[in-house]
């Protein structure tokens, strides 16, 4: 299977002098194309930082990150920006939408930046995605006129606009109630099944239980992984997958 991300021995530290500490302390990991991976770990374990460094949003202090055959440390800021725009999609805990744009404009913004002449096609694609996310009627609304779950769907549509090779999600359901959370996860599963690689950072066992592979992080290191295999609703084994995760977490003294 092709590897979309390979990172080796990456180190990332914050603070200076005595207060300096490694948030990532020699992490090596590989993500395969088409995989649905989640990263679990307590607060401050370095999950989000790992995601930011793998996506080129943050630089590493040591080690290397290779994305789709390119060493990220050799790319300048503009090349990194291009990479994010063309090959990646992001979903954050908060919907991270721009206040002064309506929801449709928020979705098309990243793609429109460089392809203004294709505006009608882009708009059409956004509408298709909105339909898929069941938010068609929200097109002209502002941020303040939609619920948290709806806004997160807008965020997912935005992340899908460029047909990315990978979607990074930093606690995408963290701010949602369990019903909304469930709906968002189902949407992500559907996206994954259509061939998109997804990497999520999460606290939530219910979320992690629906992913193929779970990485466990403590104190800046990957301390274990669990290969659960693809989740299939028809098998009705979600409870069992969750219980297995709880066991593993207990073993690792999370």
């Amino acid at each position: 299977m092709n590897k979309i991300i390979t990172c080796e021995n990456i180190v990332k530290s914050f603070g200076e002098g005595d207060e300096k500490h490694n948030v990532l302390d020699g992490v090596s990991v590989e993500i395969n194309e088409g995989e649905f991976v989640s990263v679990m770990g307590p607060s401050g374990s370095g999950k989000s930082t790992l995601m930011y460094t793998l996506s080129g949003m943050d630089h590493v202090d040591a080690g290397s990150v290779n994305f789709d055959g390119k060493d990220l440390s050799t790319l300048n800021e503009n090349e990194l920006a291009d990479l994010r725009r063309i090959k990646m999609g992001f979903i954050f805990q908060q919907p991270t939408l721009l206040k002064n744009l309506n929801l449709l404009d928020n979705i098309i913004l990243p793609l429109l930046n460089k392809n203004r002449e294709k505006s009608p096609e882009i708009k059409e694609r956004a509408r298709t995605l909105m339909k898929r996310a069941d938010i068609t009627e929200l097109e002209e609304r502002n941020i303040s006129q939609a619920s948290g779950g709806q806004l997160q769907r807008v965020g997912i549509c935005r992340a899908l606009m460029n047909n990315p090779k990978i979607i990074f999600g930093d606690e995408p359901t963290g701010a949602l109630n369990s019903k909304s959370s469930n709906e968002i996860m189902n949407l992500l599963l559907e996206i994954h099944r259509s061939g998109t690689t997804i990497m999520l950072v999460t606290h939530d066992i219910k979320v992690a239980a629906k992913t193929e592979r779970v990485l466990f992080m403590i104190d800046g290191k990957i301390v274990g992984e669990h290969l659960a295999g693809a989740y299939d609703e028809s098998r009705d084994d979600l409870k069992a997958r969750e219980d297995r995760l709880i066991e593993l977490l207990a073993e690792m003294k999370f």
Partner: peptide
Amino acid sequence: YSIAVMKAFGFTSYE
């Protein structure tokens, strides 16, 4: 915040 969001979605500093 908005700048960070735009950067995350591939806007360059120049843009």
